[in-house]
Simulated assay, not measured.
Amino acid sequence: MNALGDARLRTWTLRFMALLAADAQDQLAWLGERELETEDVVEEAELLCRVSEGLAERGVFGPSDLFHLRAVGRRLGEIDAACRVGPWAHALATDPAWDDIRSLARPLLLTRPDGWRQPLPRPARPHTEGG
């Protein structure tokens, strides 16, 4: 991948980790009235954790970053299939795995020079039929 692509993936990974590291009430506020499926959140985060391996090989992430991303990826992989079904807002309120993921994502962001208290990514767009 080129440097611009690597930089975009790095930014998206850090933004997504900021969302996962945020307090539950902030995550729920970010969601608003939108219904983001838990499975979609898990799959996106797992993909970013896997992609981070290649980014680390190219020096975009350091060994410490990779350690934390691997920990988040492992915990996401442990989420039972039944717990991946339904709205993420419900999972945040009922599944303690999200507390674990939150605590695993925070150290990655705390090692960043700008800290983890960056704005959350833009809210998820509502799903519309046919588009």
Rank of each mutant, 00 (worst) to 15 (best):
M1L: 10
A3F: 01
D6Q: 11
A7R: 07
R8G: 03
R8P: 00
R10H: 12
T11S: 14
T11L: 15
R15F: 06
M17H: 04
A18N: 08
A18T: 15
L19W: 11
L20I: 08
L20C: 07
L20K: 02
A21P: 00
Q25I: 09
Q25Y: 14
Q25T: 14
Q27L: 06
A29V: 04
W30R: 14
W30Q: 12
W30E: 02
R34N: 14
R34Q: 15
E35F: 05
L36P: 02
T38S: 08
E39A: 12
E39I: 11
D40H: 13
D40Q: 12
D40C: 07
V41H: 02
V41I: 10
V41A: 13
V42F: 00
V42R: 03
E43R: 14
E44Y: 08
A45T: 12
E46C: 10
E46K: 13
L47F: 14
L47H: 11
L48E: 03
C49L: 06
R50K: 15
E53P: 00
G54Y: 00
L55S: 07
L55F: 05
E57D: 15
G62A: 08
S64I: 07
D65P: 04
H68I: 01
L69Y: 01
L69A: 05
R75L: 09
R75D: 13
L76I: 00
G77S: 04
E78W: 11
E78S: 10
D80E: 13
A82R: 14
G86F: 03
A89F: 04
A89H: 05
H90G: 10
T94S: 14
T94Q: 11
D95R: 02
D95I: 02
D95Q: 09
D95V: 12
A97P: 06
A97Y: 02
A97N: 03
A97D: 03
D99C: 09
D100A: 14
D100W: 02
I101H: 05
R102E: 11
R102T: 01
L104C: 01
A105C: 05
A105I: 08
R106I: 02
R106A: 15
P107A: 02
L109V: 09
L110I: 03
R112I: 00
D114V: 11
D114E: 15
W116P: 15
Q118K: 10
P119H: 04
P119Y: 05
R122I: 08
P123M: 07
A124T: 01
R125Q: 14
P126V: 09
P126K: 08
H127G: 02
T128P: 00
T128R: 13
E129A: 15
G131E: 10
